[in-house]
């Protein structure tokens, strides 16, 4: 089962952590694994994080390969000056250790964007632009986009379909080209529509999930919408609303005018490849996998 309830020991621990933040938590308060409504389920592997809701508190158990020191620096950085306007703030600004030795972070429960909502593309564009323009005053680690591409290639090598050798070649070539970005800023590192939340009091959308946050090419944050648009999975209106809002807010990932594509192409290719591999691994995602793989094959041919 993809989203099973946590073992009793973990559930009790989550209740004790949540209880220190939210007085409503008692010994029988449910600890509910988070399943985003309407999404195809995906199996939880040891490297995946798991998110649990307990009353008004979210406890995230990070994947087993998570580096404590890097996660701590990321949490510290989003607590910096003015970052609370861009990021949902954690309830504890450091990772703690769960009984199963996983690292855990503790967050307030927020409203997230649902798959049935019309995405607020203009807000998203300006939110990302503001993040990319933040001064780098702390010491955040490198952006996590590279590791996601590396994991996708690793999966193709070990468990991928035999006829996808060309996709491994393509991924490796992209990884090499993405190694040395022309310019770097603070960036989310794993931006997608599930990474937006707002608190009940302040209804503006903010970013969730610090796991890949850091310094790198800001084009990574535009890469999924760009790549999905290019692959024919996102409408023109959504893409241009997003891009125009990003530019109006002075976002540095693309030039202020003219063709943005030269700045986005590599990251968008990587995002499409990673999403194609993810779709291959997810049951019932053939409809998404097909156009993404077609786009990859055109990249490989071109």
């Amino acid at each position: 089962m993809p989203h099973t309830p946590p073992p009793v020991e973990i559930a009790d621990w989550i209740r004790s952590v949540a209880g220190r933040q939210d007085p409503r938590v008692g010994p029988t308060t449910p600890v509910v694994p988070l399943v985003t409504r309407g999404l195809p389920t995906r199996p939880v592997a040891p490297e995946h994080s798991q998110v649990f809701i307990c009353a008004g508190v979210i406890v995230k158990l990070h994947g087993e390969r998570t580096d404590r020191e890097r996660l701590a620096r990321r949490l510290h950085c989003i607590g910096g000056t003015d970052m609370d306007r861009l990021w949902i703030q954690p309830l504890i600004y450091a990772p703690i250790t769960a009984p199963n030795d996983r690292l855990a972070t503790v967050w307030p429960r927020v409203t997230v964007l649902s798959t049935i909502d019309r995405p607020p593309w203009a807000d998203i564009g300006s939110l990302l632009a503001r993040l990319h323009r933040m001064p780098i005053t702390d010491d955040p680690p490198r952006l996590g986009g590279h590791s996601r591409l590396a994991r996708a290639i690793e999966y193709l090598r070990s468990d991928g379909p035999a006829d996808l050798g060309w996709l491994i070649e393509l991924g490796e070539s992209l990884a090499g080209q993405l190694e040395h970005p022309a310019h770097t800023t603070l960036a989310h590192g794993d931006f997608h529509l599930g990474q937006l939340g707002h608190t009940p009091l302040r209804r503006s959308w903010k970013l969730l999930d610090v796991d890949d946050f850091g310094i790198g090419d800001p084009a990574w944050d535009l890469a999924r919408p760009a790549g999905f648009w290019a692959a024919g999975l996102l409408e023109d209106e959504a893409w241009f609303t997003f891009l125009n809002a990003y530019r109006e807010a002075g976002g540095p990932a693309v030039p202020a005018e003219g063709d943005p594509w030269p700045s986005l192409d590599l990251a968008a290719r990587a995002a499409v490849l990673v999403a194609a591999v993810q779709a291959l691994r997810t049951p019932n995602s053939e409809d998404t996998a097909a156009p993404l793989l077609e786009a990859c094959s055109r990249m490989h041919a071109g």
């Binding site: 999404l39 997608h192 024919g232 999975l233 594509w261 192409d265 993810q278 998404t288």
Partner: peptide, 26 residues
């Protein structure tokens, strides 16, 4: 023909449910 050479912008046929792929971490 704006967009990348590997793009598929000509058909303008959007896949239903394509957006849900934008809700995942990969």
């Amino acid at each position: 023909g704006y967009g990348p050479t590997w793009g598929n912008r000509d058909g303008q046929r959007y896949r239903k449910g394509g957006l849900s792929g934008l809700f995942f971490s990969s």
